[in-house]
Each structure stands twice: as structure tokens, then as C-alpha cells.
Nucleic acid binder design. Structure first.
Lengths: 148, 148
DNA sequence: CGATATGGTCAATCTGCTTGACGATGAAGA
DNA sequence: TCTTCATCGTCAAGCAGATTGACCATATCG
């Protein structure tokens, strides 16, 4: 049926995220919300960021970003360090608990991907991967706002 | 790369929804939020629902559902009618503006899908559709919670 | 050196949602 | 039928995450 794919995309994405959320909770990471995932991803790739940068990436105000970091710091997922070159700023970096959580998410995603490959075949799933990649590239992948 | 697909899925879905949101706003439907879409979809398929049913489908309390319906009614997207068999209840149905919005979303989804087909080929996009469908079916498509 | 921009904080407020209690109506059993 | 319990919708209070606005300390640039 024409126009069916966006809905399927949403359902598949939601099903995957729901599973990841449940499994993370079982493994002791029950206190992470969707928005945290985007922060983790950004911090893991960049190595560190100021609260303002994080806010820009997440599409929220710096005040909201600071609040998010406060919460993540309280729970041991991130640490704040003095900025090496700017005495106003503080650098937020992933703490060991944060890295552990990121590692679990990657592992779960891989597991889900493998299960999916078993369902439809690795070659067909590769077509999915390439097609998604092509679309995202063409669409320019707008800055991720944590709407989920 | 292993485990890459879930992220791509999220980016693609987000890009599509972002485009739909922008285009709808341009066409005079700038006052619809993500959660409204799920309500519209449910109402269009079922033909009508009580506030409680809507709340269950959306994964929120009946109070939140009523609030949502209030807002949609004020904006002309839905109407409330007396329930034919239960004098406690009222049936929420799509009004003409609601049907118009649903129609535009379907048209936009189709357009996006066609553009995507032009990008990767209709046959490959068909593989995507079948693979997504297979995953969603296998995962049991958990009741849609409007987390996006 | 001085003007302006930027990182972070404090305070007030808004919005969408939750919990809790309630009246009105429906449904099922003695 | 009468009584009991469940359910639809409403009112009220409160919370969590976000926003706007003001501010200080520090950076940056002319």
C-alpha cells in the first residue's frame, strides 16, 4: 500500500526502543530516559561537551541542558571537569557508568539487528541498511531533537 | 557496521516526521502535535472512540485523553457526540478538519515514499517495506505509546 | 583598555501529564 | 427488583521538564 512505509518505520523504531528500554532496566539502567540517550551518543562521539553545546545538539535551552546534566551527574553517568581553556565553562564527560550504558545499548542494537537478519536474511537487511542510509543522507539528517 | 540500523531507523523516521510537520504547518495545520497524529490514526480507523479508549491506546490516563480531546475539539479537528447506548459516555469522532489533516498526512507519506523509491529503486524499497513489516509483526508491535 | 559576546546560575512560569476523589450511569447477581 | 460493584467523565491538586528573563564572571575582539 502506498504511503505505508513511514508508519512501519515508526512502529519498528518504537518496538526496538521499547525493547532496549526494558532490557536496560533489567540490567540496572532503569533510570535513563530517551533524551539521555542522545546526550550519551553525543558525548561518546565528541569526547566531551559544555552544557551549552549539549543543549544546542538536543534542541533545548542551556538551562534545560544543565538540569539534564545535573541529573546524570547525580546518577553517576557523567562527570564535570574544569574546562582547560575557559574558566567560565565546565566540560561534561561520560563517567564509567555512562560508558557502560552506551556499551550495552550498542550490544543490544547489534543483537536486535542480528535477530532481524535471521528473520529476513542478511542480504535483504543489508538493502534496508543501504536504503535507510541513502535516505538519511539525502534528507540531510536534521539536528536530532529528542522528540522520539 | 554492526548495530548501525537502529540509529539509521531513528534518523530516517525523525527526518520524515520533521518534513511532515513542516509541510503540514505550511498548509494551515500548524497546531497539531505528534500525539494528535496517533489519535487521528486511531479515530480514522475505528470511526470513533470514547476518551477512555483513546487514553488506553495512547498510553495515558483518561484525564490526559480528555484534555487532548478538548484541545482538538476547540481547534475543530474532532467532534463529540452522545454515545448511542451509554449515557455516561461521549463518542469522539473526526470532524471535517480532522479528516482533511489525515488526508494530507497520507498524501505526504506517499510523496516521501515515492521520492525515496526514486533514490534507491522501487524494488529495493519494496525489500525495505517487507523487512520492516516482518520485524513489526514478529515484535508484536507493542501498543503505540506516543513517545516518538 | 573598553565594548560586546558567551558559559553558567537563579528565579518565575508554562504545559502536559499524573494521582486522587467524586457523581452519574451501567451491569451483574441474590 | 434491589444491591453491589465497575466504568465514563469531571474537578482539583501537584509534579516534571521545559521555557523566558535577568544576572555575574570570564572571553574575545576592535
Amino acid at each position: 500500500m502506498a504511503g505505508e512505509i513511514p508508519g512501519l518505520l515508526g512502529m519498528a523504531f518504537h518496538a526496538i526502543m521499547e525493547e532496549v528500554h526494558v532490557r536496560l532496566a533489567e540490567e540496572g539502567f532503569g533510570d535513563v530516559r530517551p533524551a539521555h540517550g542522545f546526550a550519551f551518543q553525543y558525548l561518546s562521539v565528541r569526547g566531551g561537551a559544555t552544557a551549552v553545546e549539549l543543549g544546542q545538539h538536543l534542541g533545548v535551552t542551556k538551562q534545560a541542558a544543565v538540569q539534564l546534566v545535573d541529573e546524570l551527574e547525580r546518577r553517576g553517568y557523567v562527570e564535570r571537569r574544569p574546562h582547560p581553556a575557559d574558566r567560565r565553562a565546565r566540560v561534561v564527560v561520560l563517567a564509567s557508568r555512562g560508558w557502560a550504558c552506551v556499551g550495552r545499548v550498542v550490544a543490544l542494537w547489534t543483537e536486535i539487528e542480528n535477530r532481524w537478519a535471521g528473520l529476513v536474511g542478511a542480504d535483504r537487511l543489508e538493502v534496508v541498511r543501504e536504503s535507510l542510509s541513502a535516505y538519511v543522507t539525502a534528507a540531510g539528517s536534521p539536528p536530532i531533537r529528542p522528540l522520539w
